[in-house]
Design a binder for these strands. Structure first.
Length: 578
DNA sequence: GCCGTTTTCGGCCCGACTGTTTTCAGTCG
């Protein structure tokens, strides 16, 4: 089992224990353990096998969890989990996913009414059986019915890029609200997570009622979920939740810090604050002994009050950021202005929509100084992939137009060559050897077992004509799981053979993920961030890749295509690629 | 279940909102 799989076991364990009414701190210990393992940038198996190291020394892992990890690594399962699964009916778990119902209420409903499905629950609500239970009432009953209707859509996290569009529209609307003097988006949107579950808007308003009315007048509003004195929640576009919190101007920094999260990061902030004799909440920072307020207007103040510099929102996951902040070693994260090249794009020769010249001109418009043209190889028949002859023909064209671009843009002769199902590359070595830049990628046989697909990718890495693995895990967020590939083995091989790994900037892909990126950084494997553009506008997704890189803690120095052409060439020479 | 320059026991972040309650539990973030 790998880190995510082990983390998933403890997450499920925590969830099931909640239904059993276990000690909430014990539940949280399992959740913390799961997070610690998921966030680890090295394989937990290696730590377990290293006689010099001790799993229980990891933060959040104690004696009990270390033992259970051992069992999982050895046997692949945990008897405790099997038992718990049998004791908690699936329908109870399904019920707890309905907004407003948690573990306690779901368990109570199941206990009082004989329910076998969500349909049974809906029927019970309509018959008034739910309202008759002690602790439940008419309103709960109707909100369960509402919740059932939207449960599926409401639980779906959307791509950051799509949330960004909603944010832009709502910002445009709210800008016209005269009573609001200050506003900012917080939450996972501000932390630039690859997906966003809801949006948090923070605002200072002289008239809160008017500000809430104004939000409710947003044309895209579908409904209002709740409205109190300081907080309102609405749904936009049928199901997506948007919260607005109204705070005083001198609380803005504390509120921004608080609502940006993550929850784990905030818990850590408050723990440090306690050690300083301080209490942090969304209204400010206060001395515990006499309630004196010491900070709150800006985020800088809040962090400074506990002796830390401001931490970039992308890093606020309680991974390494507190250690870095304390040591003054927070990374200077990569920014869009750092990018010089884009080494993965398609043209109308295969499934792209623009010509080489159009892509080149668009790249120049975007401030790039080098690109690689990387159309598909012949195996990708649906895309009209290039065979040997057509590829050599395309490279001849690139040779011909290179001179006229030479003072502005270097154009590399590239290919996105498929790694075949049975292993091996889709084009012969003597052809690949004539190009400048060879991406290798998996498009077929994605569901192969772990060993098989890992071997295919390792084979590509060992091929001297391959320079980079494109979209190394193949996942499509919310739509397709990653290959069962052993990423640790891929990274070690990439390091050993001097190959790049791609961070694919397409908002549906974004592989590598933040944990992979942190691991690559630790192993000093150079990353390239590529757009995989299929048309001119596709070049603009670069910024999504950069946000993902920031979440991995990458600086410009960790990303090879921030280098100018000369330095990039020098790096490749040092890696033995040319 | 985890953790420790006050602690190996006794804590564990903190508050808003809701619904069903007469003072609070559950849920959410």
């Amino acid at each position: 089992m790998d880190n995510p799989q082990i983390a998933a076991v403890f997450e499920e364990l925590a969830e099931l224990l909640e239904f059993r009414g276990e000690n909430p701190f014990r539940i949280r210990a399992y959740q913390n353990g799961a997070r610690a393992i998921r966030d680890l940038d090295e394989p937990i198996r290696e730590i377990a096998q290293d006689p010099e190291r001790d799993l229980s020394k990891l933060s959040g892992i104690g004696k009990t969890l270390a033992e259970k990890i051992g069992v999982l690594l050895e046997t692949g399962s945990l008897p405790q989990l099997v038992e718990l699964r049998e004791s908690v009916p699936e329908v109870v778990i399904a019920m707890s996913r309905i907004p407003g119902l948690g573990a306690k209420k779901a368990a109570k409903l199941h206990e009082e009414l004989d329910l076998n499905s969500l349909d049974d629950l809906a029927a019970a609500c309509r018959e008034g059986k739910v309202a008759a239970i002690k602790g439940f009432g008419k309103k709960t009953e109707s909100s369960i019915l509402d919740g059932l209707a939207i449960a599926k859509a409401a639980s779906e996290r959307i791509y950051w890029a799509n949330a960004d569009v909603i944010v832009a529209n709502l910002t445009e609307h709210m800008k016209n609200c005269e009573t609001i003097s200050q506003m900012q988006w917080a939450g996972s949107y501000r932390r630039c997570r690859e997906t966003v579950g809801d949006l948090d808007l923070l605002a200072v308003a002289s008239d809160r009622t008017k500000a809430m009315d104004f939000l409710e007048s947003y044309p895209g509003r579908a409904s209002t979920i709740l409205r109190g004195d300081t907080k309102i929640s609405i749904r936009v576009e049928k199901s997506f939740q948007v919260d607005m919190r109204l705070v005083e101007a001198d609380q803005f920094g504390a509120a921004l810090q608080y609502f940006t999260g993550s929850q784990a990061h905030n818990i850590h902030v408050r723990r440090i604050a306690k050690e300083h004799g301080l209490k942090v909440n969304e209204y400010g920072v206060f001395r515990i002994d006499d309630e004196t307020r010491v900070a709150g207007t800006t985020e800088e103040e809040v962090y400074a009050s506990i002796g830390l510099p401001v931490i970039a929102p992308e890093l606020r996951e309680d991974r390494h950021e507190f250690e870095w902040a304390a040591n003054q070693t927070l990374p200077e994260l990569i920014e869009p202005a750092h990018m010089r090249g884009d080494l993965h794009m398609h043209t109308s020769a295969t499934d792209g929509h623009n010509t080489i010249r159009e892509m080149a001109d668009a790249a120049i418009d975007r401030g790039l100084t080098y690109i690689a043209i990387t159309d598909h190889s012949k195996r990708v028949t649906v895309a009209g992939g290039l065979d040997e002859d057509r590829l050599l023909e395309q490279w001849k064209i690139i040779d011909e137009i290179r001179d006229e671009y030479s003072d502005r843009l270097t154009i590399y002769k590239g290919i996105e060559c498929d790694i075949l199902e049975a292993g091996g590359m889709d084009l012969p070595d003597e052809v690949l050897g004539q190009g400048d830049w060879v991406l290798a990628s998996v498009h077929f046989g994605q569901k192969q077992p772990r060993d098989q697909i890992t071997d295919r990718i390792l084979g590509a890495i060992e091929n001297p004509h391959v320079h980079c693995i494109a979209h190394p895990t193949g996942r499509l967020i919310n739509r397709r799981d990653p290959y069962e590939v052993d990423m640790d083995a891929v990274m070690k091989a990439a390091k050993q053979h001097g190959k790049f790994l791609e961070l694919n900037a397409n908002p549906a892909r974004l592989d590598l993920n933040d944990i992979h990126l942190a691991a690559a950084k630790r192993l000093e494997i150079p990353i390239v961030i590529n757009t995989d553009a299929h048309r001119i506008e596709g070049l603009d997704v670069m910024r999504f890749g950069i946000l993902q890189a920031r979440r991995g803690g990458l600086t410009a120095a960790d990303v090879a295509n921030t280098l100018d052409v000369e330095s990039f060439t020098k790096l490749r020479k040092n890696m033995g690629q040319i």
